[in-house]
């Protein structure tokens, strides 16, 4: 922050540039039309239900089983991504090796590859006759058409989040701090766990939360590989779809409201984490 803005009076009219009213007006109008009003329809439609109806719809055994699977698998997938994401970010920032640029670009593949394509491709790999599946099936390991498939699809789609949140922070970690730690007699593991890791923790948590939030809502890649057995490998978004296909609009709306609330909580959490990260990096510089 330059000294000029720092000492400027707080009530100074900051709106020197033109176009404030029109751009803000358009932003709010477009946001309301596309996002807020349709989302509010979800809330209003749920209000038509009695409390008992709502409660029955969102706590039916099959729905509860789907919550457990969706949230459990998303959490596990985000954990796996936190570990491998940190490792990948570390390798990409700290080491030079052949093909590094390509690996760096490929990390974003799950963002760019349509989910349906990812779904059928992972299924083709892991099914009993697939490239990987054919070696695992004789060993009794089945990765497709069950809960394992859900987990693998969710790991795939959440992969870039941790790498992309941790990478820039790791690039900014001051070498001097590590050198100082080493000079003071810290082992390499101590330097990592006591000096580097605390700096990365907010970014790592943010990436974890983003991967988790994305995984909760994921539909396209999972349905091909999950097998979609009720009570076993049926995810919550699929419950909404099947209720819609049976014209059970009330039920679909109620379950969707639960998903929307989960999304809101995650969004607030991620915002909080990002603010924490900014205050951390602001304090250190």
């Amino acid at each position: 922050m330059s000294s000029l803005t720092l000492f400027a009076p707080r009530h100074q009219p900051a709106r020197v540039l033109p176009g404030f009213e029109i751009t803000l007006g358009f932003t709010i109008a477009y946001l309301s039309l596309i996002v807020l009003i349709p989302l509010s329809a979800l809330v209003f439609k749920t209000l038509n239900l009695t409390w008992e109806q709502f409660w029955q719809a969102v706590t039916a055994p099959r729905v509860v089983a789907s919550y457990k699977l969706t949230f459990g698998a998303s959490f596990t997938a985000a954990l796996v991504n936190a570990f491998f994401g940190l490792l990948l970010a570390w390798v990409l920032v700290r080491y030079q090796f052949f093909g590094k640029k390509i690996v760096d670009a490929l990390v974003d593949l799950p963002f760019a590859l349509p989910t349906a394509v990812a779904g059928i491709s992972l299924t083709a790999l892991l099914a009993g006759n697939g490239w990987i599946g054919q070696y695992l099936e004789p060993l009794g390991i089945q990765l497709a058409f069950n809960r394992n498939g859900v987990l693998i699809a969710l790991i795939f789609i959440g992969l870039p989040f941790v790498v992309r949140t941790v990478q820039p922070i790791l690039e900014d970690v001051e070498k001097e701090l590590e050198e100082a730690a080493t000079c003071l007699g810290a082992t390499r593991w101590q330097t990592f766990s006591r000096v580097i890791f605390p700096t990365l923790a907010p970014a790592l948590l943010t990436g974890f939360a983003m991967a988790f939030a994305r995984a909760i809502g994921e539909y396209g890649s999972v349905i091909f590989i999950a097998g979609n057995m009720p009570m076993v490998s049926e995810i919550t978004p699929l419950i909404i779809i099947s209720k819609l296909e049976q014209y059970d609009y009330a039920g679909a709306t109620a379950v969707a409201l639960v998903m929307l609330c989960a999304a809101f909580v995650m969004l607030l959490l991620i915002n909080g984490l990002q603010a924490w990260q900014r205050s951390r990096s602001g304090a250190s510089s």
Binding site: P38, L42, A256, A263, I270
Partner: peptide, 25 residues
């Protein structure tokens, strides 16, 4: 406002489709 702009990222695509069914279906 910035948070609201980000909102569609965290809404499940299935819910995104459903809300338009509720408005225009």
């Amino acid at each position: 406002l910035t948070t609201l702009v980000d909102l569609p990222f965290s809404v499940s695509p299935v819910v995104a489709g459903l809300i338009y069914v509720l408005v225009f279906g």
